[in-house]
Design a protein around this nucleic acid. Structure first.
Length: 299
RNA sequence: GGAGGGGUGGCGGAGCGGUCAAUCGCACCAGACUGUAAAUUUGGCGCCUUCGGGCUACGCAGGUUCAAAUCCUGCCCCCUCCA
C-alpha cells in the first residue's frame, strides 16, 4: 500500500548550530527545497547579520521564504505558517522534498501543532493598546487588564509587556478574552503532512564558540555596513526604529556603536552575548516545547 | 628612592566594626512560551544540607575586639605622581 502523505523534513536547533549546512546537504542528496523557518531571515534587510544563505548557496540549491519581506514589514507565526504550507505544497507538487530549516521554534510549532483560529487584530487597535501600555507603565497596565480580563490577568506575568499587549488588543478587537480564543482547538497542519524532525544541537561550549566565531565572520563580511544602511533609513524616518528587523541579534549594539553611544569593541561583545543567550533560549524551547517524541524523529 | 591610591565572589564594581555569603551590573545556569518569538518574561547563581542549618570566604601572615571585608602591624603585588 502506498503512503500518500507529504513527507516534510524539519531541521531545527539553535542558531549557529549548523542547520543550514545540514539542510544544504540533505537537499542535494534528496532533491529537496529549503524552506526558511526563521523569523528574521524572512526580511531582505540584514542578510549578513541574520545569517541568510549566500547567493552561491541559493544558486546551488532551491531556497524559499528568505528575504521576502521588507524592513517595514512584520510577520507572525500565523502568516509564516500559511506561507510555509504554500511552499510545502509547491515543492511536493514539483516532486521535491520540502525541507524546513530554521530556529524559530514558535513558527515551527504553529505549523506542526497549529494555532487556535483568531481574527486579525487591526493595526489601529494594537497601536492604541501599545500607547496605553506606555502611558500606564507595567504594573498598572497589568492591573487594568486584570480588571477587564481576569483570566488573562491571572495568567500573565505583570511585567510581560508583549503578552499583556496581546491579551488586551485581542480583547479590544474581538470583545472576547484571549483565553476563550485559545481554548478553541488549534488549527493543525493538513492531515497528510508527515513531519520528520531533525534537531541539531551541538554541545554547549561548541555552540557558544560557534556563535562567537560566526559573529566575527559577519563583521568581516559586511555586517557593519548593513547596519549602517538600515540605521540611515531609520534616521531618515523611512523605517520605524522598532521595526521587527531591528530585533536581529547584534543590530542594536552595532547601531549604538555607529551612533557613538558605545565603543565598537563593547558592541561586539554585547552582540556575541546576545547570540549565545538566544541560542540557549532556543535549546530550552526545543527541549520543552517541541519534543522530538511528539513528531517522528529522525536521528 | 619619596608621596599617594588600591588589592572584594568568573569579570566589573559597592561596602569601610555587628543587621554581610557580602547592594548592583555583566557573564553564566535553569524555566515559561497559542499570531512582534533573533521577541517578551521568571527564578537561580561560594560549598554542603534531612532545608532547621552547617562550613569556607573579601591579597598573605599575625594582632586588637564579645564581634573584622571593614581597625592595627608586617609582607607580597598593582596603579598614579615626584625623583
Amino acid at each position: 500500500m502506498t503512503d500518500h502523505r507529504v513527507p516534510i523534513t524539519v531541521i531545527a536547533g539553535p542558531t549557529a548550530g549548523g542547520k543550514s549546512a545540514r539542510a544544504m546537504a540533505l537537499a542535494t542528496e534528496r532533491n529537496g527545497v529549503i524552506i526558511n523557518a526563521d523569523s528574521l531571515q524572512v526580511y531582505d534587510t540584514l542578510p549578513i547579520l541574520t545569517a541568510q544563505p549566500s547567493d552561491d548557496d541559493k544558486n546551488k540549491t532551491p531556497h524559499c521564504l528568505y528575504g521576502i519581506l521588507g524592513a517595514r514589514d512584520g510577520c507572525s507565526a500565523a502568516q509564516w505558517r500559511l506561507l510555509a504550507m504554500r511552499e510545502i505544497d509547491a515543492a511536493h507538487a514539483a516532486g521535491q522534498l520540502p525541507i524546513l530549516c530554521g530556529g524559530t521554534g514558535f513558527y515551527l510549532k504553529a505549523l506542526m501543532h497549529g494555532l487556535s483560529p483568531l481574527p486579525d487584530v487591526p493595526p489601529a487597535v494594537r497601536a492604541r493598546v501599545m500607547a496605553r501600555q506606555k502611558e500606564l507603565g507595567n504594573p498598572a497596565f497589568h492591573a487594568e487588564l486584570a480588571k477587564l480580563d481576569p483570566v488573562m490577568g491571572a495568567k500573565l506575568n505583570p511585567n510581560d509587556t508583549q503578552r499583556l499587549v496581546r491579551a488586551r488588543e485581542v480583547l479590544e478587537a474581538t470583545g472576547k478574552s484571549l483565553a476563550e480564543w485559545q481554548a478553541l482547538p488549534p488549527e493543525g497542519p493538513p492531515a497528510h503532512y508527515k513531519f520528520a524532525l531533525e534537531l541539531i544541537s551541538p554541545e554547549r561550549d561548541v555552540l557558544y564558540a560557534r556563535c562567537n566565531a560566526r559573529f566575527d565572520t559577519m563583521l568581516k563580511s559586511g555586517g557593519i555596513e548593513e547596519v549602517e544602511a538600515l540605521d540611515r533609513r531609520i534616521q531618515a524616518g523611512e523605517v520605524s526604529a522598532d521595526a521587527p528587523v531591528t530585533h536581529a541579534l547584534g543590530f542594536r549594539p552595532l547601531q549604538a556603536a555607529r551612533r557613538g553611544r558605545m565603543p565598537l569593541i563593547d558592541a561586539v561583545e554585547r552582540a556575541k552575548a546576545e547570540t549565545r543567550q538566544y541560542a540557549k533560549r532556543q535549546v530550552t524551547w526545543f527541549r520543552h516545547q517541541l519534543k522530538p517524541a511528539e513528531s517522528e524523529q529522525v536521528a
